[in-house]
Design a protein around this nucleic acid. Structure first.
Length: 615
RNA sequence: CGGGAUGUAGCGCAGCUUGGUAGCGCACUUCGUUCGGGACGAAGGGGCCGCAGGUUCGAAUCCUGUCAUCCCGACCA
């Protein structure tokens, strides 16, 4: 797939010739409105789980989005290119991502060619582009440079979902920038940030930029662009004043102040059957902020390493697994990459040949000795704690013996305080760091774009170097920038629809205007509609003509469903030279003289059509 | 992968409990009447009841296996 073919020319586009198949009933497979509507209105068909055919109407939408993306990328000096989808494993081994992307919950489709060479179907293109950069870029004089492509990506998603929202094959714009220094990277990152804002705005989407986790891509700063919608898969936390917004994976906040614990020395507390924080607090009159809960987990690494984790959190806090994974990954770099982290189970402990652990009564002082003799695990815990736990003077925690807790324990006395790392999940209602009088609000969002400052992670791994002005060889600074083009199309539907169907923004609608012939039996209506088709097309409007010999009601229903933003009905007023103009999003109907209708439509549509400012 | 559910005509579904050789609505074809918000009547076409075994005289229906799809969790544009 290459999203670069020109839109069909001004040759008459007739619904009768469009292979338009709309469905009256909702397909059972679709859950969210945008998925249902795209299927019902004849925009997509499912071929396999997470794999869709983009039918002619949607293809026009995708090309319009691609055109806007292209304009904005070109405007900031990015160069369009097209990279291979089939990529050699060797390249991915060099970046250290082959195992992580293919083993375990790996997301890369991979295969062997007839020679037995391993290949992967590109889920992303950092490796290919960096290798090319290494080949092409020799000197600082060639920098900075930014390449992008609009390309089909393949990801063997653990769970494809919601039509185009999370497909296994999808269209993405990805851009990669190369720089001689970090300051230059930052300025391209800023330029991308504003280009992205323009792209989403021009596409008619309400999108917000939020701080994000860099995930498997890696790198330092990263920002996501979220289209706000109920059906969004991500939770965005933001401050009412608009100064802070972050994906919950990444969000930070001020925790509630703990209730002081009025116990001056540590004593044991009999707590039969009290294995949860709630039970402990309600049974013994503690506040959750006075407790420390200990989570035992197991980190699995690409090299086969298994590292037990002992994580301490204040009892009222929730673990943010993304933050934990990042903390673990940076502390155990030589293990070939972190595959996953899962809670430790009693069965696993037994399988290691270890004595049972007092799950539900574990305290932070659990000794490494309990791991002695483990078959495959590292024999010591990686100990991490959230600052909310480390900051407690006295606290209640498990006594490492079933049915027993400690009250009044203190770090130092009990066990040395573990390394403090931010591991807690910020929650809606938490106070904001920048202003404690602001409280975080939650909203759901669809991630349609993500920009990263990668730094030198890939250039170092793939040895992509250039010669500086001073004649020294250095690794390139890199950024990467993605937009889910097909996802964006569906996100637009999610944000712009009503009970009757889609309401495309003009800028990305498959057509700008639909001319409906109320009665295809009436030669007068037909000829007036054909004339209007010619005139409006000549005036530069993208027109679709519904010339089907259907009852008017059927055509109106289909018109609402497929959601073309403007509708011109040639009906019983045709003899008097009057037609009806309807704006889909507003629903208001106006009865106009033909000339007035043409003037009105061309003016309104060109006003709504998104153009680059100044072009 | 773990948990839940579903596979019957292009789409939505019934039939399965209690085995007897498949039905409804929409869509499709033809004819007639209708004709500005998913018309009506008549006549048609379309199904290896997901697939493979088994039980039985006989299986859409019971049993076993398998595949696929969807939903809830970890992943991401």
């Amino acid at each position: 797939m290459i999203a670069s073919a020109p839109l069909p020319s001004a040759s008459p586009m007739r619904v009768s010739r469009l292979l338009l198949v709309t469905l009256r009933d909702d397909p059972a497979e679709a859950e969210i409105p945008s998925h249902r509507l795209l299927l019902r209105a004849g925009y997509i068909r499912r071929v396999s789980s997470g794999i869709y055919a983009y039918l002619p109407l949607l293809w026009r939408v995708l090309q319009k989005i691609a055109a806007i993306v292209r304009e904005e990328m070109n405007a900031i000096g990015a160069l369009e290119t097209l990279l291979p989808q089939l990529q050699p494993a060797e390249l991915w081994r060099r970046s250290g991502r082959w195992a992580g992307y293919t083993a375990g919950e790996g997301i890369m489709f991979h295969l062997e060619d007839r020679q037995g060479r391993e290949m992967g179907l590109g889920p992303t293109h950092e490796e290919v582009i960096t290798d090319l950069a290494a080949d092409l870029i020799r000197s600082y004089r060639q920098l900075p440079v930014c390449l992008y492509q609009i390309q089909t990506k393949f990801r063997d998603e653990i769970r494809p979902r919601f039509g185009l929202m999370r497909g296994r094959e999808f269209i993405m714009k990805d851009a990669y920038s190369f720089h001689a220094d970090e300051a230059c990277l930052r300025s391209t990152y800023e330029a991308m940030d504003s280009a992205y804002r323009r792209i989403f705005e021009r596409c008619g989407l309400r999108a917000v930029a939020v701080e994000a986790d860099s995930g498997a891509i890696g790198g330092s700063a990263s920002q996501e662009f979220m289209v706000t919608a109920e059906a969004g898969e991500d939770l965005v936390l933001s401050s009412p004043d608009g100064r802070y917004g972050a994906n919950q994976e990444r969000a930070v906040s001020l925790p509630a102040d703990p209730v002081p614990l009025e116990i001056s020395e540590c004593r044991e507390l009999s707590t039969p059957g009290t294995a949860s924080i709630e039970a402990l607090c309600s049974g013994h009159g503690f506040d959750p902020t006075q407790t420390v809960k200990v989570l035992l987990l197991l980190a699995r690494f690409a090299d086969g390493g298994l590292q037990p984790l002992l994580v301490s959190l204040r009892g009222d806090q929730q673990l943010n697994e993304v933050k934990l994974a990042n903390a673990v990954a940076t502390r155990q770099p030589p293990c070939g990459g972190l595959l996953d982290i899962t809670p430790l189970t009693a069965e696993q402990v037994e399988a290691e040949g270890l004595k049972p652990l007092p799950f539900g009564f574990v305290g932070p002082h659990l000794e490494d000795a309990v791991l002695k003799g483990a078959r495959r695990w590292q024999p010591r815990f990686l100990r991490l704690a959230d600052p909310t736990a480390v900051d407690l003077q006295r606290f209640v925690c498990g006594a490492n013996a079933t049915d027993s807790h400690l009250a009044g324990a203190a770090w130092g006395e009990l066990t040395p305080a573990p390394e403090a790392v931010d591991l807690r999940a910020a929650q809606p209602g938490d106070r904001c760091l920048h202003d404690p009088f602001q409280r975080l609000e939650a909203a759901r969002g669809i991630e349609v774009g993500h920009i990263f400052q990668l730094g030198r992670k890939y250039s170092e791994a793939l040895d992509a170097r250039f010669t500086t002005e001073g004649g020294v060889e250095e690794a390139l600074w890199m950024g990467c920038y993605g937009i889910g083009v097909s996802r964006l199309a569906q996100a637009a539907v999610e944000q712009h629809h009503d009970g009757a169907g889609i309401r495309w923004p003009v800028a990305i609608a498959p057509f700008e205007l639909l001319i409906v012939i109320a009665s295809a039996q009436d030669p007068l209506q037909v000829s007036l509609a054909e004339q209007l088709y010619e005139r409006l097309t000549a005036a530069g409007v993208e027109v679709l003509l519904d010339d089907r010999d259907e009852r008017a009601g059927v055509k109106f229903k289909d018109a609402d469903l497929i959601g073309i933003p403007w509708r011109l009905v040639v009906g019983r007023g045709a003899a008097e030279g009057r037609v009806e103009v309807v704006e889909r999003a507003v629903g208001e109907r106006r009865d106009l003289e033909v000339d007035a209708a043409v003037a009105d439509l061309t003016a309104a549509i060109s006003r709504q059509r998104s153009r680059r400012p100044g072009v």
